[in-house]
């Protein structure tokens, strides 16, 4: 019985470790507040309805709506839009 419990505990902690690691791995993070405000203001001026500003792989990733369409924008460090992606 003890052996069964031990092996089960080992197996389950390994699994839990995997789950926790995959949770922590989520690479999107909220961008810092000042930058967020700046990006929001900038894009709002260009007619975007900004929903969310994240950091991903060193770039700002913006979720927004424009002309009733969902878009994802990627901005580099200098706030320049390097990629726009329409989501349908």
């Amino acid at each position: 019985m003890k052996k069964i419990l031990t092996s089960t505990l080992v197996a389950s902690s390994l699994l839990l470790g995997t789950a926790a690691a995959s949770f922590a791995e989520g690479s999107e993070q909220a961008a810092d507040a000042a930058k967020q405000d700046q990006i929001r203001a900038n894009l709002t001026g260009q007619g975007y309805d900004v929903r969310k500003v994240d950091m991903e792989d060193g770039m700002y990733e913006v979720y927004a709506m424009k002309d009733g369409k969902k878009v994802q924008l990627f901005l580099d460090d200098s706030m320049k839009i390097v990629r726009t992606q329409d989501i349908n």
Partner: peptide, 21 residues
Amino acid sequence: VFWAEFSVALHIAAVIFESLR
């Protein structure tokens, strides 16, 4: 999703445990 992963880990652990028991 995190809750599901935790539940799956528990489910697998319980299946192993009950199989052996």
